[in-house]
Simulated scan of single mutants.
Amino acid sequence: MHGVKRVQYSQAALEAKKQRDHDKLKAYLALSDDVIARKKSHDMSNEAFELTTRLLRMNPEFYTVWNYRRDMFIESLFPQRSPSEVNELLSDDLSLTFELLKQHPKVYGIWNHRRWCLEHIPDGPSPDDVNGYRNSTWNKELFVVEKMLDADARNFHAWNYRRYILATMPFPPPPKSELAYTTRKIEANFSNFSAWHQRSKVLTTLWETGELDRVKSIEEEFELVRNAMYTDPDDQSVWIYHAWLIGNGNYAARLQFEITSIQELLDEQPDSKFSSPLQATADREACGESRG
């Protein structure tokens, strides 16, 4: 990087680093061979379980080891324990995956194991939630994924996981609260495609249930997206959402208004790479609407 002074390492330092890397690889391969051998011999011991923890900390993309770990839970660990103890075990694994996600936020295996843990939380009382371990854990999970999105608001893995939580948790928050959440994320960064996508999902639900007036809310959405368009006319996320709105507000007066609005933006930003194609699309749809 410009302005950053390069550090010159001596030959001895380079050799020492090379040796450390070699030792780490050797240790990893030995541990990996040990765990896979235990899996093949159907070793369900506590020692084998701890070895999977060590190996997954070194390589959380090792999907076979996640599967082995889940087999140990089901065949060995769960049957020997009460619901409260099972809940504690799974809570520990949720903590493990959260720790790993902070370093590897886009590894599918970690997210998948987290889902599996949630789906195996037992029913039972909880001191902080009369609805039981399950509901208490899912509520906490929604808070955790919000923290993940605070760290990286455009992590599509976290957004997919959030949709999964909202669709699966026993007592989800009302859709209007999720709409407000997407508003906050979008206003913080108009370039957040995942937030726009989530907003389209929530709005569709609210329209279908009658909780929002479709025509009125579409008008409000066009106002929101227009602010984004003028703020950053070259952001693709905004234009994709705008096209989705046009498809859902496909009537002549609105289309003509959008054509005029896009033309005004083109007059101000003639080099905008998304404005011109969208205007052409709007023109075609307006003509089709007129013919209809």
Score class of each variant (00 low, 15 high):
residue 243 A to W: 10
residue 219 E to N: 07
residue 232 D to E: 12
residue 231 T to Q: 10
residue 217 S to T: 11
residue 231 T to F: 11
residue 217 S to G: 04
residue 235 D to Q: 14
residue 219 E to I: 14
residue 231 T to A: 10
residue 221 E to A: 14
residue 225 V to S: 05
residue 235 D to G: 15
residue 216 K to D: 15
residue 223 E to N: 13
residue 228 A to T: 07
residue 244 W to Q: 01
residue 240 I to P: 00
residue 238 V to S: 04
residue 245 L to M: 13
residue 215 V to D: 13
residue 242 H to V: 01
residue 219 E to W: 00
residue 242 H to K: 10
residue 239 W to E: 01
residue 216 K to F: 03
residue 218 I to D: 01
residue 239 W to A: 02
residue 239 W to V: 06
residue 245 L to G: 03
residue 230 Y to F: 08
residue 219 E to L: 06
residue 240 I to H: 02
residue 231 T to D: 13
residue 217 S to N: 11
residue 214 R to F: 10
residue 243 A to R: 12
residue 233 P to F: 13
residue 244 W to Y: 01
residue 226 R to I: 05
residue 223 E to F: 03
residue 215 V to M: 07
residue 226 R to Q: 14
residue 226 R to A: 14
residue 235 D to V: 15
residue 216 K to I: 06
residue 224 L to G: 04
residue 222 F to I: 13
residue 219 E to S: 12
residue 246 I to H: 10
residue 227 N to C: 08
residue 244 W to F: 02
residue 221 E to I: 04
residue 220 E to N: 14
residue 225 V to G: 07
residue 222 F to P: 09
residue 220 E to H: 08
residue 238 V to W: 15
residue 217 S to F: 05
residue 216 K to N: 13
residue 222 F to R: 07
residue 243 A to V: 08
residue 217 S to L: 11
residue 241 Y to G: 05
residue 218 I to Y: 07
residue 236 Q to C: 11
residue 220 E to A: 13
residue 218 I to K: 01
residue 246 I to E: 12
residue 223 E to A: 11
residue 213 D to P: 00
residue 240 I to Y: 03
residue 229 M to T: 11
residue 226 R to K: 14
residue 230 Y to T: 13
residue 220 E to S: 13
residue 239 W to R: 02
residue 237 S to T: 03
residue 221 E to G: 07
residue 227 N to S: 09
residue 243 A to M: 08
residue 217 S to H: 09
residue 222 F to C: 10
residue 244 W to M: 01
residue 229 M to I: 15
residue 245 L to K: 03
residue 227 N to I: 04
residue 228 A to H: 06
residue 213 D to I: 00
residue 228 A to S: 12
residue 213 D to S: 01
residue 240 I to E: 02
residue 232 D to G: 03
residue 229 M to A: 11
residue 216 K to M: 06
residue 241 Y to V: 08
residue 235 D to I: 06
residue 230 Y to Q: 09
residue 233 P to V: 11
residue 230 Y to H: 05
residue 215 V to Q: 08
residue 236 Q to D: 12
residue 222 F to L: 15
residue 236 Q to E: 12
residue 214 R to Y: 04
residue 216 K to S: 15
residue 231 T to C: 07
residue 222 F to A: 10
residue 218 I to S: 03
residue 242 H to Y: 12
residue 218 I to N: 09
residue 222 F to E: 09
residue 235 D to K: 08
residue 237 S to N: 02
residue 241 Y to M: 09
residue 225 V to R: 04
residue 214 R to H: 11
residue 233 P to E: 07
residue 227 N to A: 10
residue 239 W to P: 01
residue 229 M to V: 15
residue 221 E to H: 07
residue 213 D to M: 00
residue 219 E to T: 08
residue 242 H to S: 02
residue 242 H to Q: 08
residue 225 V to M: 06
residue 213 D to H: 00
residue 233 P to D: 05
residue 232 D to L: 07
residue 215 V to A: 14
residue 240 I to G: 01
residue 238 V to M: 04
residue 226 R to C: 10
residue 243 A to S: 08
residue 235 D to M: 10
residue 237 S to I: 02
residue 224 L to P: 04
residue 230 Y to I: 14
residue 229 M to H: 00
residue 237 S to D: 01
